[in-house]
Computed example of a mutant assay.
Amino acid sequence: MALKVSSVYSQSLQIDSINLFISEQAEKFHIPGIAACVIKGDEIVWSKAYGYADIETEKPMSTESVINIASISKTITATAVMQLWEEKKLDLNADINTYLDFDVRNPQHPKTPITIKQLLTHTSSIADGSSLKIGFECGDPTVELKDWLRAYLATDGKYYYPDENFHQKAPDSLREYSNVGFGLLGLIVQEVSGMPFHEYVRLNIFEPLKMNNSGYFLNEVEEDELATAYLYLGPLQRNLNHFDKKILPYFNPYCHYSFWNYPDGLVRTSVQDLAKFAIAYMNDGTFKEKQILKKETIDFMMSPQLNEKINADKDQGLCWFQSPSLFPTWYHGGSDPGVSTRMYVNKEDKISVIVFQNANEDNSFFIIRKLYETFK
C-alpha cells in the first residue's frame, strides 16, 4: 500500500510540474490558450487545456477546441496520396502532369519532370512566391483549388511569375519547403479520386477515424468549438494574471480565415480528434479496427528518403520529419497567423504528443519535450 501511495504522490508531482511549466510557457511567450495530450498505445493517457479559446468572451480552451492546425495538415494530405498509391491509382515517380489537365514544369528546367515523391519531400523546385499570400481571406476559400493552382503554375496563369514561383535549381537537386507543392498534391488527389479534395479526406480519413469535428471548411466543424487565433501586440503587465481578461488590448484576434491553397494547412480539428490520427500511425495504420494505411506504407513514409547531398541530417521522410532530439520520433509542426501546432509520433515506443496553441509563437517544442520526457 505504501508503494502505491508513493507512486500516486510521484505522479501528482509530475502533473504539478507539467502544469507549472506550461503556465510559465504561456506567460513567457504570450499564449492565450494551449491544449495538449499524450497518447500511449491506443489511448490518451493525459490531456489538458489551459487559458482561453477566446479572450473576449472568456471561453476556456479545451482539448475539444477546434483550430486550423497549419502544416500538420500536410500529414493528412500525404495520407490521402498514399492511400491512392496503395490502390495503384498513382505512381510516386510519375510525372505529375500525368494526373493534371495543365502542364507544370520549372521554366529553368523545362525538360525535367516533377514527380509526386518530389512534392512529398519538398524537392520539386516549386517555390512559395508572394502570390501565395493573396489567397488568405476571412471565411472559406472563394477560389477553387484547381483555379488557384492553374493560375500559379500554368504559363498563362494570372499569378505565374517564373522567378518567384520556381527555384533556379532543378527538381530533385534542392530541398526547399513548399506549401504550394502540397496544394498541388491535394489537387492530384482530387483529380485521381474524382471528388473534391476535402470530400475525399472526409470520407477516407476523418470518418473512418471518427474525427467527427474535423474538416477544412467552417461548415464542417462545430462553430461553438472554434478557438480564436491571436497576434500578440504589446508588453504584458506582469502584475496581472496571464489569463486575466484585462490583457485583451494586447492581443489582436484574427478572423476565422482560410486560404486557396488549403490542402497545405487548413485542417480544422481538436487535440482529441487528431489523437485518433496519431493512434492510427502508431498502430500499423489502424484505429478501432479501421485501417487507413498499411503498416508497410507507414514504415515507408517514416523513413529517410533523400541523400545526404541535399538532406545532410537524413531527416526527411515522405512529408514527415525525423526529430534529432527525440529519436526515433517522427513529427510535423505547423505555424500560421495566430496558431502554432506540433505532433510527434513514435511508432516504435507507441507514444505520441500533440500541442496546439492559439498564437504563432513557436515555443510548442519545449512543451512537447517536457511531456515526452515525462511520459516516455
Rank of each mutant, 00 (worst) to 15 (best):
F217A: 06
F217S: 08
L218C: 05
N219G: 04
N219Y: 04
E220N: 15
E220L: 11
V221Q: 10
V221P: 09
E222F: 05
E222K: 14
E222H: 13
E222G: 09
E223I: 01
E223Q: 11
D224C: 08
E225F: 15
E225K: 15
L226I: 03
A227N: 10
A227Y: 03
T228V: 03
T228A: 06
T228F: 02
T228P: 12
A229H: 08
A229K: 08
A229V: 02
Y230E: 03
Y230T: 02
Y230C: 02
Y230I: 04
Y232N: 13
Y232A: 12
Y232D: 13
L233E: 05
L233C: 00
L236T: 06
L236C: 12
L236Q: 15
Q237E: 15
Q237R: 15
Q237M: 10
R238P: 06
R238C: 07
R238D: 07
N239K: 13
N239I: 13
N239D: 12
H242F: 13
H242E: 11
H242C: 09
H242W: 12
F243S: 11
F243Y: 14
D244I: 01
K245L: 00
K245Q: 00
K246D: 10
I247C: 00
I247L: 08
Y250P: 10
P253K: 00
Y254S: 03
Y254Q: 12
H256K: 14
H256I: 07
H256C: 12
H256G: 12
Y257V: 07
Y257F: 07
Y257L: 11
F259E: 11
F259M: 10
W260G: 13
W260Q: 11
N261M: 07
N261I: 02
N261P: 08
Y262F: 09
P263M: 02
P263W: 04
D264Q: 08
G265I: 05
G265W: 02
L266S: 03
V267E: 12
T269K: 14
T269S: 08
T269P: 12
T269D: 14
T269Y: 14
T269H: 07
T269L: 09
S270T: 01
S270P: 08
V271G: 00
V271S: 10
V271Y: 04
Q272I: 01
Q272L: 04
Q272A: 02
D273V: 03
D273Y: 04
L274Q: 14
L274S: 09
L274E: 08
A275P: 03
K276W: 06
K276F: 00
K276Y: 08
F277L: 10
I279A: 08
I279E: 12
I279F: 04
A280T: 01
M282N: 09
M282Q: 00
N283R: 14
D284S: 03
D284R: 11
T286V: 11
T286K: 09
T286Q: 11
F287P: 04
K288R: 14
K288A: 09
E289F: 08
K290I: 06
